[in-house]
Design a protein around this nucleic acid. Structure first.
Length: 274
DNA sequence: CGGGCGGCCTGGAGGC
DNA sequence: TGCCTCCAGGCCGCCC
């Protein structure tokens, strides 16, 4: 569920609360995440280190520490990264927490445990296997029709699967792929080999505007997502197609359909997406 | 080689 | 009301 907008909202909510703070210790309750947490290694890296920056690459949150190390956090499907006071009891699925100077803790909770927490040297972060293959950032002006069209030389198949491939562009998951295709008026099953240059421009613009609008609405909260302060997002109230099977399309009035592509639900309007 | 799909995981929803 | 099954999907790895 958390895609690029949710991680960006999380980053912006945490930055003013974390910058300049010092991590005084790590507490791991359950290291069994998607990749097992290296408890000793992570503890050694973060202890008594000051937080100097909050970054993001795709769906990864990056917490930079003084002295050239970064904490990498991925929320998976159901992860939460929230600040809590020392008196706040542990959440049910609170798997680890960074204890901060001043008594608060930055806690990582994740019911489904698809998430990830690790530490890497900042200077060579993007050479790590988690990042090395990732495509351009859509919001830094890195996504144009030309970029998408060029990526079709490496990636074929239906355009919806193409948009969700992190090698093509980062940060677009199932919800925003469906929404962007609706904005661009493109059918999710259309082969990327059969999309004209002008439509690639429209799609690149649709991806960017969808992500930007979602950030402005605090992200999409369907089940789990909250920002660093525990606030839900509102973009789910303005989704045009996702999880709206049977409802009328706001643009053409035809009924929204649900199909399955690569085992994932796809929602689209059969009237205005061609 | 590249695309599709299963597996990981658990809460919530829906059916009986 | 309670139990069972199924579904949600980011990402990796396996398979065709």
């Amino acid at each position: 569920m958390p895609e690029l907008p949710e991680i960006e909202v999380l980053r912006r909510s945490l930055a003013p609360r974390l910058l300049g703070r010092t991590i005084i210790g790590l507490e791991v309750t359950n290291p069994a995440l998607r990749e097992p947490v290296d408890v000793e290694g992570l503890a050694a890296v973060v202890r008594n280190r000051r937080i100097t920056g909050l970054g993001r690459r795709g769906k990864y949150l990056l917490i930079d520490l003084e002295g050239d190390d970064s904490i990498v956090v991925h929320l998976g499907m159901s992860g939460r990264l929230t600040l809590a006071g020392s008196q706040v009891p542990k959440e049910k699925h609170e798997h680890l927490a960074f204890h901060l100077d001043g008594g608060e803790r930055l806690r990582f909770s994740d019911a489904r445990r698809f998430g990830l927490v690790l530490a890497l040297p900042t200077a060579t972060l993007f050479e790590d296997s988690h990042f090395a293959h990732l495509g351009p950032e859509p919001l830094a002006g890195g996504l144009t029709g030309e970029v998408l069209a060029a990526a079709t030389e490496r990636r074929r198949g239906p355009v919806k699967n193409f948009l969700m491939d992190g090698r093509v562009v980062v940060g677009v998951g199932n919800i925003y792929a469906c929404e962007a295709l609706h904005r661009a008026g493109i059918h999710p099953k259309r082969s990327v080999a059969r999309i004209a240059p002008r439509r690639w421009d429209a799609l690149a613009q649709a991806v960017c505007s969808t992500l930007e609008d979602a950030i402005a609405q605090g992200g999409t909260t369907l089940n789990d997502f909250v920002d660093g302060e525990g606030n839900s997002g509102y973009f789910q109230t303005v989704l045009e197609v996702y999880d709206r099977e049977g409802e009328a399309c706001s643009r053409c009035g035809k009924s929204i359909r649900r199909i399955v592509q690569s085992g994932r639900s796809t929602f689209y309007c059969g009237g205005c997406q061609r």
